[in-house]
Design a protein around this nucleic acid. Structure first.
Lengths: 224, 224
DNA sequence: GTGCTAAACATATCGCCGTTATGCAACAAT
DNA sequence: ATTGTTGCATAACGGCGATATGTTTAGCAC
């Protein structure tokens, strides 16, 4: 039962490997991610990947978790406006900008970019779905102040997420070309969804276009 | 200047290789796609991939083109209803069902699943964007019969595509779990977008909910 | 301080991959 | 029949993730 504590791992090497891998993924894409490349830049042998992460999958997994946390940080750093509808737009923009800033990482996180047999577990995906909590709260806020109908907030939040994710992935894939590129499509997409999925039906006298114009006005005030 | 025409390639081998690769991709996923695997099942040597396709990328590219053509066929086989709004929903459903039927292929086509350094060219992406022509026509039809506002039809078609693609990719990635899975989210997403992005604003007296209900009714009639 | 043990790590190797060099058989042109 | 070009099998190359094996080092008992 004697517990011996031999040489322990160096946490600096741990983070260094992940940072090197993240930089490699960001600058040269997924095919540059190899144990030999990473460990060579870290000054160790390939075994380091196995002692620290149990293999390439483990390293990628921790990198993905880091990406989820960074996305979460970007999203939670948003809430500030007095208008919850504008907040939703800001959430979507932050989501998109984070994805555009780390395109390869986003592909691994949500696109399932097959990285040498790496695949996410259900627990990993839960981290991804955690992104939604902020959106759900924002939708609930919109409902509570009477801007959105009292529908299923999780449902509406999912629709926002789906649309934003779809635009981002097509944009990253190079499928959105000018003049209908991501910049041109993003805000109108959000507006359309907020009108169609969230807006209050009680104001029957107001047309769809009136709702759209109102939301567009609020968004443009937040554009700067 | 003497042109000699020695032994020609066998077109049956050409298609056999692509079909084997497609079957392999569909049944065992992207990591099962290897020259050795494919050529072994075809009864040839690995060189066949290079004489017929110039390498693995060429084979994947032709496979992707085949996938685009199949998607296009699925979509063009849809138009039949008298109501263009219902047609749009049917288009979206066909798009989604095609993707769910060939998830790995769809990932390669649109997700940019990095298949051993394979990446699409702009010309490949044009084939993907060709998908939109049917949707654009359908939106134009909705406008022509007075169901949609006279907005930019390409813009609206893009929004439909974006939302459908987003739902499909998240669904394929395993991010949509019950009770808010793809089945539950798909039709409402389409309805919301049609209401918010396409519906006519002129009928100012009708509420957003009225528009939604009308579209939902028309979709449910087409559900069978 | 001195062993002892177990973990960290380097080295070498394995089986796989895409790709390429080489060689030979097959066929069209002459 | 000869010749030249191409299809394609064989074998090899470099690189990959992973593993087996040996070496070094850190911490504990004494």
């Amino acid at each position: 039962m004697s517990k011996v504590s031999p040489r322990r791992t160096d946490p600096r090497t741990h983070t260094a490997l992940i940072e090197i891998a993240a930089a490699l993924l960001a600058t040269e894409g997924p095919q540059a991610l190899s144990t030999r490349r990473i460990t060579a830049e870290a000054g160790t042998s390939t075994m380091a990947v196995y002692t620290y992460f149990g293999g390439m999958s483990g390293l990628v997994r921790e990198m993905v978790h880091e990406g989820f946390q960074r996305l979460q940080r970007h999203l939670t750093a948003v809430r500030s406006t007095s208008d919850p509808v504008s907040d939703m737009a800001l959430l979507g923009r932050a989501y998109r900008l984070n994805a555009l800033a780390n395109p390869h990482l986003y592909s691994v996180m949500f696109g399932g970019a097959s990285l040498s047999g790496f695949s996410l577990t259900d627990e990993d995906r839960q981290h991804g779905r955690y992104t939604l909590t902020g959106v759900v709260e924002c939708v609930a806020h919109c409902v509570s102040v009477g801007r959105f109908a009292d529908a299923d907030v999780a449902h509406v939040a999912h629709q926002m997420w789906i649309a934003t994710h779809g635009l981002v992935t097509l944009e990253l894939g190079g499928y959105l070309v000018a003049p209908l590129d991501g910049d041109a499509l993003f805000d109108p997409q959000l507006v359309a969804l907020m009108v169609g999925a969230g807006d209050r039906p009680e104001m029957a006298a107001r047309s769809v276009r009136a709702s759209r114009r109102r939301i567009e006005r609020e968004l443009s005030q937040q554009a700067g």
